[in-house]
Nucleic acid binder design. Structure first.
Lengths: 138, 138
DNA sequence: GGATGTTACGCGACGCGTAATTATC
DNA sequence: GATAATTACGCGTCGCGTAACATCC
C-alpha cells in the first residue's frame, strides 16, 4: 500500500497516457509503466486497458481510481494539518567528492531567500550518508 | 508519508513502550526508536514525551495518533475492497546457495493446504532477484 | 522516423538488522 | 544486573534510472 503509487495512477488517468504522465511526474516512462503493473498485480485488478489509441480505465479501474482519490484527499488533509511548522520542505543533494559542486551548492543556499527549507549535502564516497547541512538560507 | 510508520506509532501508544511495541511488531527496538524520531521530524511534532517511567503521548501527539488511526482505517477499507481476488498473500524466502534450505522450502510448500498464497524463493548470489516460484500448494 | 508501450539490467540509497553506549531501576 | 532508549554502522533490497526492443501512426 503505497500512496505515491496511487497518485501515479491517477495522473495516468488524467493524462490518458503513461508517457505523458511520466513527464508530468518527473519519472521515466518505463518506471511508471512498471509501477502500474505492480499496483494492478497487488490488487488483482486491471485498472487500464492498453489499446492502440492509448490507455483507458476499465469500469473497476474507474472505481479504484475514484476511491484512491478519496483516500489521497484524506492523506493530504492529514499532512496539511501537521506539516505546517517544521522540516517540511527539504532539499537533498548528492555529488562526487569534489570541491566545485560543494562550492556551488553553498553559493546557491546562501542566495536563496529565507524560507523554511532545510538543506543537506553529501559526497558520494562510503559510507553514503546524508549529513545535516550547517548552512541555513538567508 | 508512510502508513506503516503511522501504524508503528499507534502500537507504541498502545504498548506505552517502544521496546514492547517492537516485540509486538516483530522489529528491533533500535529500529522502531528511529522510526519514531523520523516521523516526529517529518511532521515537526513531539508525539511522545520520554520519561523515566516510560513513554506517554503529548496533547498534540494524542491528536496526531487519533487522526492517524482514522486515516489507517480508511486505508484498510480501501485495501479490503480491492485485495480480495488475487495475489494478496505472498511469502518470499531468501537463503544461501545450498540445497538443504531449498529442499525444506519445497517440502513446506507441498505440505501447506490450498490457500491463495503465492511463494517465491531465491538464493543469495547475484543478481539477487526473486523468481516466481513454480510450486503451488496442494 | 516519432509516438507509444514493455522487458532487462545496474547503481546507489534506504530498510532494517546487530553492536555498542547511556541512563534508570 | 536487567530493562529502556539512543547512536553507529553494515548488508542486502529495491527505487528508479538507462538501454534495448516491439508495435502502431
Amino acid at each position: 500500500m503505497n500512496l505515491q503509487h496511487l497518485e501515479y495512477l491517477i495522473e495516468i488517468e488524467n493524462c490518458g497516457s503513461i508517457s505523458k504522465a511520466a513527464r508530468r511526474l518527473f519519472v521515466t516512462q518505463p518506471y511508471l509503466s512498471r509501477i502500474l503493473k505492480e499496483v494492478e498485480s497487488e490488487y488483482g485488478i486491471t485498472v487500464f486497458t492498453r489499446e492502440k489509441t492509448g490507455i483507458t480505465p476499465t469500469d473497476s479501474g474507474r472505481l479504484f481510481l475514484d476511491m484512491a482519490r478519496d483516500l489521497l484527499d484524506d492523506a493530504g488533509n492529514f499532512q496539511r494539518i501537521f506539516r505546517e511548522r517544521a522540516d517540511h520542505y527539504r532539499l537533498r543533494v548528492s555529488a562526487c567528492t569534489c570541491s566545485h559542486p560543494n562550492d556551488a551548492f553553498i553559493r546557491m543556499v546562501k542566495s536563496i531567500p529565507d524560507i523554511p527549507l532545510r538543506f543537506s549535502y553529501r559526497e558520494s564516497s562510503p559510507p553514503h550518508r546524508h549529513r545535516r547541512c550547517l548552512f541555513q538560507p538567508g
